[in-house]
Computed example of a mutant assay.
Amino acid sequence: MSRLSRKKVLITFGRSFLALHLARLMGAAGHEVLISDSVHFPITRFSASVTKTFRTPRPRYEPVEWTHALADIVRDEGVDLVVTIHEGTEILANTIEKYPDLFPDSCTLFFSGFDVEARLENKYEFQSALARLGIPTLDFALVRSQKDLEAVDFDTFALKRVYSRGSQEVYKVRPGEFPSGLMFDPNNPWIAQEWAEGTNYCSYSVCHDGEVKAHAVYPVRYAIEGTSCLTFESVEHEGIDAWVRECVKAFNFTGQLGFDFVEVPDRGLFTVECNPRSTSGVLLFDPETNVDRAFFGVNDDVIAPQPGASKVLGPGMLMYGWRKSARKDKTLLQYLRDYRRTDGVISSRRDLGPSLALPLAMGNILAEATRYRVNIPEAFMHDHEWDGAED
């Protein structure tokens, strides 16, 4: 059990498996867990770890109303800590800049100020910040037009929006072979980033005032189109550990933070992008780690997952993991073995509700896909996405 006294924690984006896992971690540590979401049946509401669920406006489309709704929950329920999941982090950080007195001082909003969150979220601004700090980067350039694209002076590169996420398009551009039909949005331009072959890793950290309080590293093995991880296995990597400590200190960061890395032979370690919010690395922490202490910043030593900890996103592996683009050089037989031997995120003998409610929860996502006319991976997060808007 945690040494903390019982706290009341509000976790947003309850449809997420990350919210479900964090709710279980907080519940196992003795805290009271509340959940919010804009859909009717977020999977986390069916967890025995959750005491109340609240339906809120959509943060992407009604950010002010959503922020007011969260503030009302905090005041009415006496919430001690708000943990935002996905890009609701940036939306809430942005909105409270304009309405700074909505939340009582007794409640901690677990993220950094909007200026830091926005700089880290913007893929181009993040790389520029690293360069100013003297941290080595892959070659990169801002692309606002076809002319900018054709002027990129390094060979093969990745092309993606400065505000985007793993479920969205990434182009691999070879010399002289530019993608056709590109749209250029002045509010969300593209970044061209050198394509480097190497070993890919992700990290996840819980931070307070520039210090890392909890930390996990995992290699990219199965991923939707090579970008959104489906399996997670804790590994040790001292180079990544040191890199993250340096970066967190430089930005004086508070909140949850993820990085995508590539380790290039004979060149070293580079950071591809930053996710200044909850990422799937939280799935590697089990109740025995007492990672709740990191969210409240009361631990001295860095909390890490148990050795060999592993998890798999079952529905995602069934839908995408078998595809060649997701499993890279692994055979279908290897895929089946890896799927069967890895602990699931949803199923739990101590908490059967989410497993039984999975068809209902997935129905939410299908409805969102139909409503917004997007694919299923994008529908999952669509009304919680943030693309740099400050209104």
Rank of each mutant, 00 (worst) to 15 (best):
R6M: 12
R6E: 12
K7V: 03
K8C: 02
L18R: 03
A19N: 03
A19L: 05
A23S: 13
E32C: 14
L34A: 12
L34D: 06
I35H: 13
S36C: 15
S36K: 04
H40T: 11
P42N: 06
I43A: 05
F46D: 06
A48S: 15
S49R: 01
R58C: 11
P59Y: 14
P59C: 15
E62V: 11
E65K: 15
A71Q: 10
V74I: 08
D76I: 07
V79Y: 07
V82R: 01
V83F: 05
V83W: 07
G88C: 14
T89Y: 02
T95Y: 02
F103L: 01
D105E: 15
T108K: 14
F114S: 03
D115C: 09
V116M: 03
E125A: 11
A129E: 09
A129N: 00
L130R: 02
R132G: 08
L138D: 01
F140G: 04
F140M: 03
A141P: 00
V143A: 06
R144K: 12
E150M: 04
A151Q: 14
F157N: 07
F157Q: 10
A158D: 01
L159I: 02
R161H: 12
Y163E: 06
S164P: 06
S167H: 10
Y171A: 10
V173G: 05
V173C: 05
S180D: 15
P189L: 12
P189V: 11
E194G: 04
E194Y: 01
W195P: 04
G198R: 06
G198W: 04
N200Y: 05
Y201T: 00
Y204R: 01
S205R: 03
G210E: 04
A216L: 02
R221C: 01
S228T: 13
L230Q: 07
E233Y: 04
A242H: 09
E246L: 07
F251P: 01
T254D: 11
T254C: 08
G255T: 08
L257R: 08
G258C: 12
F261W: 02
F270M: 00
V272T: 01
E273T: 01
E273S: 00
S280N: 13
T289P: 07
V291E: 09
D292F: 13
V298D: 12
V298W: 11
V302Y: 11
G308M: 08
S310D: 06
K311Q: 10
L313C: 11
P315V: 09
M317A: 11
M319R: 15
K328S: 14
T331D: 10
D343K: 15
V345G: 06
I346L: 13
S348V: 06
R350K: 15
G363C: 11
A367Y: 08
A367V: 10
Y372S: 14
R373Y: 06
V374S: 14
N375Q: 11
H382C: 13
E385Q: 10
D387F: 15
